[in-house]
């Protein structure tokens, strides 16, 4: 469990994180979304006590991070790929980190095995690819077998097989009751991995809701209709207050503001023939773009979805 209350970080005149309050619950994958520069990495550094908040506070498992005696057994973090001395081997890199938290040497071999780096463990890490660097970073996060995982862009630089591996790893960790907090700019990946989303823009909270809820509330959701009588149907829909857009490419209608049932019943009651009546769901990407395009205009909502325009 990660709890932030009024978390604020100012660098000079820039407000990187602006009065963020949130709770990251255990037992699910929480995706952390926001455009570049929204304050995601800063928020993660604040959680880990690497940066000091200007005001507000954040705790992990009920205690500020820096107060934990062996923090790696509580929180495992991946902040940047390839944060390793190029001349040091992956094994020695992990061994040094393990020693600081009195973690058994055996565990180093285990996590190397787990991330698939055993064969390269004794080589100088300077030759590692970005993907291998990510795997090493994830090995670092797993070292203390923590109950909280904080990963900043973990799929960056990974091949499709690696991405699938991460996805399963995160879901498995959440299923075990761990708190999993993961940032990404890949919406499609988040839609597949995250159960819950925390969306921020310009340092402020825009939405905190279930992934499915965020997509549902998007204005990208609409109903697609094809009919031989578009003018007639449009008139009927207008009367009901729906907004109708003619899609020129295939002369279909794109309808917002009425449920698919209401549209079908309306057409039947007025004898309008329909060739197609189908729901179109927005992608998380569309929902995200819509949420963040005017990020600065929205106040931080107290409850899920408040900040989502409809």
């Amino acid at each position: 469990m990660i709890e932030a209350k009024g978390l604020t970080k100012r660098y000079g005149s820039t407000l990187a994180v602006d009065n963020l309050s949130f709770t990251i619950e255990p037992g699910r994958v929480t995706g952390f979304l926001g455009p570049n520069g929204a304050g995601k990495s800063t928020t993660m550094r604040l959680i880990l006590g690497l940066d000091r908040p200007t005001s507000g506070s954040v705790t992990v498992n009920g205690t500020p991070y820096a107060k934990h005696r062996r923090p790696l057994t509580e929180v495992g973090a991946l902040l940047e790929a390839k944060a390793i001395h190029g001349g040091r081997s992956a094994y020695n890199h992990l061994l040094a980190i393990a020693q600081t938290n009195h973690i058994d040497k055996k565990r180093v071999g285990e996590v190397l095995e787990l991330v698939g780096l055993s064969a390269r463990a004794k080589q100088r890490a300077g030759n590692f690819s970005l993907g291998m660097g990510q795997r090493l970073g994830i090995a670092t996060a797993l070292l203390g077998d923590p109950s909280i995982l904080i990963l900043d862009e973990p799929v960056n630089g990974l091949d499709p097989e690696g991405i699938l591996w991460i996805r399963n790893l995160l879901k498995h960790a959440a299923a075990q009751g761990k708190t999993v907090f993961v940032s990404s700019h890949l919406m499609s990946e988040m839609a597949l991995t995250a159960d819950h989303l925390l969306v921020i823009g310009r340092g402020r909270l825009i939405a905190a809701a279930a992934t499915s809820e965020v997509i549902e509330l998007s204005s990208g959701n609409h109903v697609r209709v094809r009919t031989p009588n578009p003018d007639g149907l449009t008139r009927l829909l207008d009367d009901k207050g729906a907004s109708v857009t003619r899609v020129e490419s295939d002369s279909s209608l794109s309808i917002h503001g009425l449920t698919i049932e209401a549209i079908g019943e309306l057409a039947a009651a007025n004898g309008v023939i329909l060739h197609e009546l189908s729901p179109v769901q927005a992608s998380l990407e569309e929902a995200f773009m819509e949420l963040t395009e005017d990020a600065v205009e929205y106040r931080a909502p107290g409850t899920a979805g408040d900040g989502i325009p409809t």
Binding site: R45, L48, G49, A66, P71, L79, A83, I84, I97, T100
Partner: peptide
């Protein structure tokens, strides 16, 4: 300085938040 140039300083200080110790 190599901790700063490679970014391992964050790993080090996340592992030991009592910064005087490292």
């Amino acid at each position: 300085s190599s901790e700063y140039s490679t970014g391992t300083i964050r790993t080090t200080l996340a592992a030991v938040p009592q910064r005087g110790y490292p």
